[in-house]
Nucleic acid binder design. Structure first.
Lengths: 360, 360
DNA sequence: CTGAAAGCGCTTACAG
DNA sequence: CTGAAAGCGCTTACAG
């Protein structure tokens, strides 16, 4: 592979001049410039980014450590992060922690070894010492979605409180009173916050959240299934299961069907994190939707601000409730009768986005 | 950040000795070794991978260019690729081409500039000249899933022919005769191959594939919707729509529902590429399943073989048919009656994997 | 076993 | 405007 020396030789100039042309340095004669450019084209020369990084001490690369790539929420987040990063001239390397602290550590370490310019993290558990050390040592860092309290790192996230309140209002309006939640890991902020928001909203309606109606999940489908089975085994099972993320909702759906029960007739189901597939499940699932793409973009902007010496900003964006059919007919729905599944399906999915009736 | 010089100073040895300790070079006295290790720990030293790469001319990094991260098939592929790469001591940088040739080019270029040790590609269109030049210039490369004929690059992919034949047998057995396909881009191998396999299988049953029943999609949901609308507008619409990938199948499902039609009663639906969500759609979708994880791992092994000087091997793995309810009751099913949706649902999803009845 | 030195491919003050 | 030279942080023949 041709190096800058080859180009210099071919163009009959020094490597310094080649470098200047390549970096658009103003003081280069137009004659030298054309000769260099010609040589570059002739040799198919491409600057070695590794060498450039070593010299300039910047890699134009961002690290993104997420907790589970297979979760569509994080896939979409990753996608929007890459998009915005690319627009700003950065590449991104994704590390998938798979909800495993050791893997999270592995990726943080690898990313740091590669001297990425900044790190975007959605911490899996309380966050590793490694990560916190890096933040303290001055590695530009921004938390997305999940964060770690008490650390001097900007946070870009969604606030689901009012959407969860809307959800509880919706459920209450449907006459539902026994509401249960499948929680995420308490060590994650999203895990604990969603339970808190739910409990607070219930309290506003004079409802409580008994321990029996609080199941401990880990954001993966299997835990949703397990917890739901526990709920169904209760002498008095809940009327609604609210899963703190989309994968656990799917597990819950499996568990419910495995008993031969129907959603929403026998038990209602709702989820935190809306994903395109929820329009297509049977029935379509009511969910709290985060502005995922916007979160990813805002996180990148905050991180790049930090990297390039501008003051970074924490951002909190509102989530919103998307009502579908998994909790029963909304009292505000125009169809007063218990419609047949078929009719409702057809009506509810004229266009997938049109299905999203936000709460007033 | 501490450099090797700092460690050397702290340990009272030369940088050469530090380097030897770090790289497990045998000829280091145990005294020197312990002093270096102590210094490394004291300073929290981590070798700079950029500098190391420049010197050794290897980055221990693989590039993976896929056509669409939001497609669960590719997400899973990416995940398995990263897993196997990690096991072999490599990192992977993912580039999402979003089915756009220009983006594919962007990522190939960026990856090459970063001097990745090898490239895993699922080409978006016919493949860019850039990519082919790189392959010819000796960049270790392996195609996964899609490939480009006539290039000296190992291919790791699934063969769907027999699964597609099983699908057609299944449909034929259900009495269906008017079968249509939503094709992928003809420029991609998977786009053209799947149509060919379908046509061949139809021929075995004395059925033809008229032009009107061949719609041109682009592997994205929206195209599935559009093509399906065209099918439904036909004077004699097909009885079955087979989508060449999972996203187009979802688009088809939308289009069908938008007309107030039911699957499978009014029209049957099947897809290439099985994904976890297909168990949860209404109805669960019959699909041709690729051994995605195995493909990803095999691709990495082939690439690393190539990188490390061993002869790489092309691999073709069989896909298999997974029958669900979107084409109607299988004639081999035990329930002879037209079961109510509810009962079937409950019975069919006792466990999500138990639903997968492979064709005999 | 150990260290001084060269060199990977760049960028960038410095001098002219 | 241009080039010689230093240096980024490593690894590795070479000499001892």
């Amino acid at each position: 592979m041709a190096s800058i020396k080859d180009v210099a030789a071919e163009a009959g100039v020094s490597v310094a001049t080649v470098s200047r042309v390549l970096n658009d340095h103003p003081s280069v004669s137009s004659d030298a410039r054309t000769r260099v450019l010609r040589a570059v084209a002739a040799l198919g020369y491409r600057p070695n980014a590794v060498a450039r990084s070593l010299r300039t001490d910047q890699t134009r690369t961002l690290g993104l450590v997420i907790s589970d790539v297979l979760n569509p929420y994080f896939t979409e987040l990753a996608r929007s992060v890459e998009e915005e990063a690319r627009a700003l001239g950065y590449s991104v390397i994704i590390g998938n922690a798979d909800e495993r602290p050791d893997l999270q550590d592995h990726h943080v370490r690898t990313l740091l070894d590669r001297r990425i310019d900044g790190l975007l993290v959605s911490p899996t558990d309380g966050g590793s010492p490694l990560m916190l050390d890096a933040a303290r040592a001055g590695t530009p860092m921004v938390f997305v979605d999940r964060w770690i309290p008490g650390v001097e790192v900007p946070v870009v996230r969604a606030d689901g409180q009012s959407a969860v309140r809307d959800l509880v209002a919706h459920l209450y309006g449907l006459g539902l009173r026994r509401l249960a939640i499948i929680a995420g890991p308490a060590a994650t902020t999203t895990g604990s916050e969603r339970v808190r928001a739910f409990r607070t909203a219930l309290a506003e309606y004079g409802l409580s959240l008994p321990d029996a109606y609080t199941g401990q999940g880990d954001f993966q489908a299997e835990s949703g299934r397990r917890v739901t089975e526990g709920f169904l085994d209760l002498p008095e099972p809940p009327e609604v299961v609210f899963a703190a993320d989309n994968l656990m909702a799917l597990g819950a759906l499996d568990a419910i069907r495995a008993r031969g029960l129907r959603v929403p007739d026998d038990i209602a189901l709702a989820a935190f994190d809306d994903i395109p597939w929820f329009v297509h499940t049977d029935p379509p699932i009511t969910a709290v939707a985060q502005p995922t793409g916007e979160l990813g973009r805002a996180a990148v902007r905050a991180l790049v601000d930090r990297i390039e010496g501008r003051p970074p900003q924490s951002v909190t964006l509102p989530a919103r409730l998307v009502v579908r059919r998994s909790c029963g007919e909304s009292p505000t729905a125009t169809t007063p009768t218990t419609t047949t599944p078929t009719t409702t399906t057809a009506a509810a999915t004229t266009a997938s986005t049109a299905t999203n009736r936000s709460m007033p």
